[in-house]
Simulated assay, not measured.
Amino acid sequence: MAKAKEEFEEVSSLEDELSCPICLCLYTNPVSLSCGHSFCKQCIQKALSAQQQSKASYSCPMCKIQLGPILELQKNFQLCSIVKAFLATTSKGKQGKSSPEDEERVPCDFCLDQPQPSVKTCLTCDSSLCQAHLNKHNARASQKDHVLLEAAVGCSAEERKCRQHGRLLECCCEDDREYVCVLCCIAGSHKGHSIVTLKEVHDKELGVLSHTVKQMQENESALINALEELQKSENQLKTNTKTVTSQLVKLFEEIRVEVNRKEQQILSDIQSNEKKQLAGITKLKKKMEQKRDEAAQHLQTLQKMREQPDAFLFLKEFKLAQDRIENQNFKADKIKVVVAELDPARMKKYRSLMSDYICQLDLLMQEVHSK
Rank of each mutant, 00 (worst) to 15 (best):
R177G: 03
V182S: 08
E170N: 07
E158I: 04
T197P: 05
V196W: 11
S194L: 12
E178N: 07
H165F: 01
R163M: 01
E174W: 06
C162S: 05
K161Y: 13
C184G: 00
K161S: 10
C173E: 13
K191G: 12
E158N: 08
T197C: 10
H193F: 12
V182M: 08
C184L: 00
I186D: 09
L168I: 14
L169R: 04
E170W: 02
T197F: 05
C181F: 06
E178P: 04
C172M: 06
C185W: 10
C185F: 10
S189F: 11
C162G: 05
H190V: 15
I186V: 09
C172E: 02
R177A: 05
C162I: 05
G188R: 01
I195G: 09
Q164K: 13
L198F: 05
L169K: 06
V182Y: 07
S189R: 13
R163K: 02
E174R: 13
H193N: 14
E159R: 03
C171N: 15
V180F: 07
Y179F: 04
C185I: 13
C171E: 11
H190S: 14
R167Y: 05
L198Q: 08
I186S: 11
V182I: 11
L198W: 04
H165A: 01
L183S: 00
K161E: 09
H190K: 13
H165T: 05
E178A: 10
D175L: 05
S189H: 12
S189W: 09
I195Y: 06
I195V: 09
I186K: 11
R167P: 00
C171V: 11
R160C: 13
D175A: 06
K191V: 15
L183C: 00
C185Q: 15
E174V: 13
R160K: 15
L198K: 06
R163E: 04
E158P: 07
I186G: 03
C162H: 04
L169D: 02
R167I: 07
H193E: 12
T197W: 06
Q164F: 10
T197M: 08
C173V: 13
R177K: 08
C172D: 01
E159W: 01
S189V: 11
G166P: 00
S189E: 13
C171G: 07
C173D: 15
G188Y: 05
R177S: 06
H190F: 15
Q164T: 14
C184I: 00
G166N: 02
G188V: 02
V196E: 10
V182K: 06
C171A: 09
C173L: 14
T197L: 07
E178V: 10
L168K: 09
E178L: 08
D175Q: 05
I195W: 05
L183K: 00
C173R: 10
L169P: 01
R177P: 00
C162A: 04
A187L: 01
E170T: 12
C173H: 12
A187D: 02
H165W: 01
R160H: 11
V182A: 07
H193I: 12
G192K: 11
G188L: 03
R167K: 10
C181S: 07
L168T: 15
D176E: 15
D176L: 10
R177L: 05
D176R: 08
G192R: 11
V180K: 06
L183N: 00
D175G: 03
E174A: 08
L169T: 05
R167D: 09
L169S: 03
